[in-house]
């Protein structure tokens, strides 16, 4: 059962999940904000793809850029309009705000477009299949692996080599002290939201490509996946989020092939039970990271 096809499937699923988890944890690391609106960035990316590709019939490379840009812009706007005014408020107030933002965005598309799912036109090569060493797989599975690899390498270079990256790492360790270095709070937080939106935007393309459709509730599943992956991997480090994403992809695929058919509908519940059990034994996740409870404010 564990053949090359399984490996490719797991890697591509893990890549997608890793992107989702990383986008969530970048913001959490700095703001200590559990962003329930994060899934909606994926949803917005999906709708941008729908508008650009299906409605306007733009060339595929333009549609992909537009999808990513839409997620980035919306992510930044939510920071500016909703999260910045509540930055100094309690953690619960921030969580409720993010949930309200999520509901707001869902209902905006519900009112402006429709509650029904819309078909999304994806680049023609996404669903083509190739055969490598006897394993047949759609091109998009290989693409997500490659794109994720490039993004992760780029991001780690940015975080390690640029001053902004250093400032962001410093801010997720000690936020106030970072400001004492002259680093503007808004700069690192905005950067975190922009990168978070970028990752969600890229993920949205591949997420939407699996069902080739988008609806107002499209963001719910990616959000949960990011949550679980982050909890598994550890919420205090970016490496943890990536590891968590891949581990989650592996568990998910293993459950899919081992659970009896009658239990498949409980697969999500199984995942969450696993998460809770996991937290029992390792509350900080796989990768512990520098643990601080300091909140911005």
């Amino acid at each position: 059962m564990i053949d090359l096809e399984f490996v490719i499937n797991t890697l591509s699923l893990g890549s997608l999940y890793a992107l989702l988890a990383l986008g969530l944890v970048l913001v959490y690391g700095i703001l200590k904000l559990v962003n329930f609106a994060y899934g909606e960035y994926v949803m917005v990316g999906g709708y941008a793809l729908y508008i650009a590709a299906t409605l306007l019939g733009m060339p595929w490379y333009v549609t992909l850029v537009i999808a990513v840009l839409a997620a980035v812009v919306v992510s930044y706007l939510t920071e500016l309009v909703a999260f910045r005014p509540v930055r100094n408020k309690s953690a619960n107030a921030q969580i409720i705000t993010s949930f309200a933002v999520s509901i707001f965005l869902q209902n905006v598309v519900l009112i402006l477009i429709s509650s029904r799912a819309r078909a999304v036109q994806l680049p023609f090569f996404f669903s083509k299949t190739v055969t490598i060493a006897g394993a047949t797989t759609p091109v998009r599975n290989l693409l997500i692996i490659a794109v994720t690899a490039v993004l992760l390498v780029t991001l780690s270079v940015v975080m390690k080599k640029t001053v902004l990256g250093m400032a962001m790492r410093a801010a997720s360790d000690k936020f106030t002290t970072t400001r004492l270095m002259g680093v503007p709070a808004n700069l690192v937080i905005s950067a975190a939201f922009l990168i978070s939106g970028l990752l969600a935007g890229v993920a949205s393309i591949f997420w939407v490509s699996r069902s080739a459709s988008v609806d107002p509730l499209t963001g719910a599943a990616p959000l949960l996946i990011a949550f679980i992956a982050v909890v598994i991997g550890g919420m205090h480090s970016t490496v943890g989020a990536v590891v968590g994403g891949f581990v989650y992809g592996l568990i998910f695929n293993l459950l899919s092939i081992t659970l009896p058919a009658s239990m498949i509908s409980y697969r999500d519940a199984f995942m969450f039970v696993l998460v809770v059990l996991f937290l029992l034994f390792r509350p900080a996740g796989i990768i512990k990271g520098g643990y601080t409870e300091e909140r911005v404010g």
């Binding site: 250093m166 360790d173 000690k174 106030t176």
Partner: peptide, 30 residues
Amino acid sequence: PERIVRRGISLVPEGREIFGSLTVEENLRL
């Protein structure tokens, strides 16, 4: 705080507040 630093006041906070996961070089660069 970030504006006050630019005006020319630097604080070495109580408890040192070194960025533990950053190298000495990166601490100085920040």
